[in-house]
Design a protein around this nucleic acid. Structure first.
Length: 818
RNA sequence: GCCGAAGUGGCGGAACAGGCAGACGCGCACGACUCAAACUCGUGUUCCUUCGGGAGUGUGGGUUCGAUUCCCACCUUCGGCACCA
């Protein structure tokens, strides 16, 4: 053997070339093997390249994929590029380079970096969502949605990010900051395309129950969908116009003392009386100037203005004053609310500010009727001042009043969602063109399927110009077209789809990435899908992960896929922060690249360190010294193989012991990979390597068992450290790749210890350890325990009261102190 | 405010169907190698201690022979939602 010292850079570049030339990681359908699809969220190919934080996603899935392959599965482990959309375009704009060019450059660099760290992706299945062969099918799905009425155009108040210069969906905006991190998002009233995700609100909510996802992310989605069950009650103006309101508390309808409209409500103009018009107009103008963020601050003073009009409460025909108030949101429910100050905190505040009457209709337990409230009472209680419903418990009253509304056609049960429809229009260049034309005669016309793809025109000047309109509007040859229906003059929709349209179905494309008769080849899709394991960051909890579920539910309803949930199991890796505890970013200067770490320590050391540094799902800071520990471990491992020994005949006791340790190791490594507990998987390997170094390398000890153990160890290390494993495999005179070897099996019997150390406690305090055979009974352990001088000393003159014994675990001797 | 997750050495963390707390690694100290440093290797490393032992897993209670693990109350941190009627 020609072992030198461990030199990762030579080893790694050699095997990287070998693997590229071989078909080692090609995913193949059906050879009588079970399948396993293991996907990473596909990344935005940014020009900055990958940092070690990205690797925290790719390394663990690579370990699992390698493990599953060795376990005999057909593994689908592909990679692709979420190339359309804001992240890529932003980079192109700031660097003044066309996004086509930056995309191609970036994806090449990403692929290089991923190969550098030894990932086993099947590159023959690489996809790029910005290529016509891909986005053609994104458009095809759009048309499917359109035909079902699930894609529609509407003019509403939308979120608009002045930095991105585009509309955004509500999912992409939080506290006035867009998902790209820009402040100052505002509302604009412009036409835009929507996907009707709200039609699937209930289904998406119910589907969560059976998913193998973390409770954390399921709760985020539940919260986001925000289902409320209640009653829609129709109030009427004195002129007879219907004003429905949604309430979760129909039991309080007798307590309505005012009625509220959002200042934007379309009826405000109409019902405002002349003498109130000035005040109402002033208040509306003031509301319009408030930013949406200010408006949604709970602590704001509750204000409002009387419109001069009244509505009639259908339950008791009382006439109720109509006010406008900015705490009523135009976008939720009907933009109107019944004001019940006695039983709603916000209404109570408004009533207090304007001396409006407060009518108690739910009696708090333990109080007497007529006592005044000094805050709104929100809990349950006995109904009072509620006509025929008096005396009922409020929860039952809710049902009875709802029944009453339904039988008298005054209202009905209703479910309301907080989630809004998904706004898909982007007034940006780098996206999938929306396949719609506007004809002078026919109006809005979908592009026929056979005319797809609607190609994105190549434009030198792709930047938004501040007009608020899509740059595509400046490409005359793109815009001007003929109507597919009447051949008349028409123009194309110039908005593109946000990138989340592409990512809503890309996982299906991996099953047949070059198929051109449809978005995917049916048989391949049925073979590989749904995704068995999906891994990525938590930041997509209500973006990609909700959209993709919606999209797949729709495809299931269309009969295009035989399942509703696209991702059977989902795991979210923890974030890897810089050494300063902050997110890695170029502007902070705390970015650590895999390139620099691979150069200094080797890819295997980087992989081992990232697996070992913390539990998979936990945030952790990078530690410059930590990776060196991983490198030392690999050195120690290497040295096990590079040392030479004198031959020796069998040392039977040591052989048996070693065999046992090996079977424990196989069990530990296997189980911990499957459970995504990579940190303890690595520590098990470290312990084993330490053990070999300490106990089996001193002296001239080299038996058949030892050889076999070393050989198995190479296989066990292979998923985590593929390069060193491959090199050792060949250095130890094996043919073929270690990565296609069968994973070793463990034998539970062989892994069992023959003797155990039983801790002996006296009055609950550890005093001694005794070594006994594994299944020793109480008597045997007692004998051993009472022989121990330590135990004798601690019992002393005391009298043994009781002995507690848990076989194989512990003995606790209880004594009375003299 | 509501919902969720989590608090263990100097640091990352391990152990939890209740049973030896601190595995493994980093750092640090000392030693070996070296002219020297780095690397590497070895030994030690929770705290206190009169060297017998005592204390100890965010805080205070509880259940138990026994609690990091279970129960109650609280504190802190981090996430999500947040005027949703």
């Amino acid at each position: 053997m020609m072992f030198g010292t461990y030199n990762p850079s030579n080893i790694e570049s050699k095997w990287r070339r070998e693997w590229q030339l071989s078909d080692l990681y090609r995913a193949l359908e059906s050879q009588g093997k079970p399948k396993y699809s293991c996907l990473d969220f596909f990344p935005y190919p940014s020009g900055e390249g990958l940092h070690v934080g990205h690797c925290r996603n790719y390394i663990p899935t690579d370990v699992l994929s390698r493990y599953m392959r060795m376990r005999g599965y057909n593994v689908l482990h592909p990679m692709g590029w979420d190339a359309f959309g804001e992240p890529t375009e932003h980079y192109a704009v700031t660097h003044g380079v066309h996004p086509r060019e930056t995309t191609d450059r970036s994806t090449e660099n990403f692929r290089r970096q991923m190969e550098l760290i030894g990932t086993s992706y099947d590159w023959s299945r690489e996809i790029d969502s910005s290529q016509p062969e891909f986005y053609r099918w994104t458009q095809w799905f759009f048309l499917k949605l359109y035909k079902k009425g699930l894609a529609y155009r509407s003019t509403n108040w939308q979120w608009w990010c002045p930095t991105c210069q585009t509309t955004l969906s509500s999912h992409e905006v939080s506290a006035g900051v867009c998902w790209r991190g820009h402040q100052g998002v505002v509302k604009r009233e412009i036409p835009a395309w929507y996907f009707r995700i709200t039609a699937y609100g209930d289904a998406l909510l119910d589907g969560l129950d059976d998913l193998d996802w973390s409770d954390r992310i399921k709760n985020i989605q539940r919260n986001w969908i925000g289902k409320s069950e209640g009653c829609e009650i129709i109030f009427r103006t004195e002129a007879g116009e219907a004003l429905p309101v949604f309430t979760t508390r129909p039991d309080t309808v007798f307590g309505v003392t005012f009625f509220l409209l959002a200042p934007e409500h379309p009826l405000v103009q109409k019902i405002t009386t002349d003498d109130q018009r000035t005040q109402v107009a002033a208040y509306s103008a003031q509301t319009a100037h408030l930013s949406e963020i200010d408006r949604m601050t709970e602590t704001r003073e509750k204000t409002g203005v009387f419109t001069g009009s009244f509505v009639i409460n259908p339950i008791n025909k009382s006439h109720i004053p109509v006010w406008i108030a900015d705490y009523v949101l135009p976008s939720y429910g009907s933009g109107a609310v019944m004001g019940v100050p006695a039983h709603d905190e916000r209404d109570y505040e408004l009533a207090r500010n304007y001396d409006l009457p407060v009518k108690v209709v739910i009696l708090p337990p333990g109080t007497s009727p007529g006592a005044s409230l000094d805050e709104a009472y929100l809990g349950p209680g006995e109904m009072i001042n509620s006509g025929e419903f008096d005396g009922l418990p409020s929860d039952e009253g809710s049902e009875r009043i709802t029944d009453y509304m339904e039988t008298h056609k005054l209202g009905c049960r209703k479910v309301q969602y907080r989630m809004r429809d998904w706004l898909i229009s982007r007034q940006r260049y780098w996206g999938t063109p929306i396949p719609i034309v506007y004809c002078q005669n026919c109006g809005e016309v979908p592009v026929p399927e056979e005319q797809l793809p609607v190609l994105l025109p190549n434009m030198d000047d792709f930047r938004p110009d501040g007009s608020g309109r899509s740059p595509l509007g400046r490409a005359a040859e793109f815009v001007n077209t003929t109507c597919p229906r009447c051949d008349g003059q028409a123009h194309r929709e110039t908005d593109t789809m946000g990138g989340f349209a592409c990512s809503s179905w890309y996982f299906l494309r991996f099953t047949s990435p070059h198929y051109d008769q449809g978005p995917f080849e049916e048989e391949a899709m049925r073979y590989w899908m749904p995704v068995d394991l999906y891994v990525g960051g938590i930041e997509h909890a209500v973006l990609h992960l909700l959209y993709a579920r919606f999209w797949t539910y729709f495809l299931a309803d269309e009969g295009l896929v035989p399942f509703k949930e696209p991702f059977t199991k989902l795991l979210n890796q923890g974030q890897l922060m810089g050494t300063d505890g902050l997110r890695m970013s170029k502007s902070r200067g705390n970015v650590i690249t895999p390139d620099s770490m691979v150069e200094k320590y080797g890819a295997d050391a980087l992989r081992v360190y990232e697996l070992f540094m913390a539990p998979f799902d936990q945030d952790v800071n990078w530690n410059d010294d930590g990776i060196n520990g991983a490198r030392r471990f690999l050195n120690r491992t290497w040295n096990l193989y590079s040392k030479t020994y004198l031959e020796s005949t069998a040392a039977s006791k040591k052989d048996k012991e070693l065999e046992r340790e090996l079977h424990k190791l196989i069990r530990n490594v296997s189980q911990r990979i499957e459970d995504f507990r990579f940190n303890t998987m690595i520590s098990a390997l470290m312990e084993f390597v330490n053990l070999l170094g300490e106990r089996y390398q001193t002296g001239n000890w080299r038996t058949e068992t030892y050889h076999r153990v070393l050989e198995t160890l190479i296989i066990l290390i292979a998923p985590a450290a593929p390069y060193i494993a491959e090199e050792l495999w060949h250095q130890t005179e094996h043919d073929g790749s270690v990565h296609i070897q069968d994973w070793p099996q463990w034998d539970a019997k062989l892994a069992e210890d023959e003797t155990v150390q039983i801790p002996i406690q006296v009055n609950g305090r550890l005093r001694a350890l005794v070594e006994v055979v594994k299944d020793a009974d109480q008597k045997e352990v007692e004998t051993a325990a009472f022989e121990s001088p330590k135990i004798q000393q601690h019992i002393g003159e005391g009298k043994v009261k009781e002995v507690i014994f848990v076989p194989g675990k512990i003995m606790n001797i209880l004594i009375d102190q003299p």
